[in-house]
Simulated assay, not measured.
Amino acid sequence: MSQSIDRTKSLEQLDGEHWGAPPADATSLVRTVHEWRRRPIGTLEPDELARLIGQNVGLPWLLPLAVEILRDEALKQPAGGFIDGDLLYAVVTRSSEVWTAHPELARQLKGAVTLLTDLSTYEKREVEAFLASLPEGL
């Protein structure tokens, strides 16, 4: 996963896949994912990133952005920063294979989540599961 991502490009431009229009009977989520894939990734809000990541869409480009957001929020947290629970959940619940394949990004996420102090019981459980799933040495 590249850390230098052109945020002015859409997922369609970055991955070269053009899904076209969603089927006529598509769910709201499917229609929304199709729409968001055409937007520049730098314009996606944390809740939109969370939905896309939760659907395993655009992970090579969206996970680095999400980890950056979470790291920045974690650094601000002691001063009253806000952690987007949906984004945190979407990121830490990706499969261990994703993190094994991208150890530097996993290290960055590990560093960010270890700074978090104001998590709900639910969020703590998900973060602990993520940390436990990491290979030794990360």
Results as ranks from 00 to 15, higher is better:
residue 82 F to A: 11
residue 80 G to E: 14
residue 87 L to C: 10
residue 93 T to G: 02
residue 94 R to K: 06
residue 99 W to C: 05
residue 88 L to P: 03
residue 98 V to G: 00
residue 98 V to D: 04
residue 90 A to Q: 05
residue 105 L to H: 05
residue 93 T to W: 00
residue 84 D to H: 06
residue 81 G to T: 07
residue 96 S to M: 03
residue 78 P to Q: 08
residue 97 E to F: 04
residue 103 P to C: 06
residue 78 P to L: 14
residue 97 E to M: 07
residue 105 L to F: 02
residue 94 R to H: 07
residue 86 D to A: 06
residue 88 L to A: 07
residue 104 E to G: 13
residue 94 R to N: 08
residue 83 I to G: 10
residue 87 L to P: 03
residue 74 A to V: 01
residue 84 D to M: 08
residue 103 P to G: 04
residue 88 L to G: 04
residue 103 P to I: 03
residue 76 K to S: 11
residue 82 F to Y: 07
residue 90 A to M: 08
residue 76 K to I: 00
residue 92 V to I: 08
residue 84 D to P: 01
residue 87 L to M: 06
residue 90 A to L: 09
residue 76 K to G: 13
residue 97 E to R: 12
residue 82 F to V: 11
residue 101 A to G: 13
residue 79 A to V: 03
residue 78 P to E: 14
residue 100 T to E: 05
residue 86 D to G: 11
residue 100 T to W: 00
residue 95 S to A: 13
residue 74 A to I: 00
residue 105 L to I: 14
residue 75 L to Q: 11
residue 77 Q to F: 01
residue 93 T to V: 13
residue 97 E to D: 12
residue 80 G to M: 13
residue 104 E to D: 15
residue 103 P to V: 01
residue 104 E to K: 12
residue 99 W to M: 02
residue 104 E to H: 12
residue 96 S to F: 00
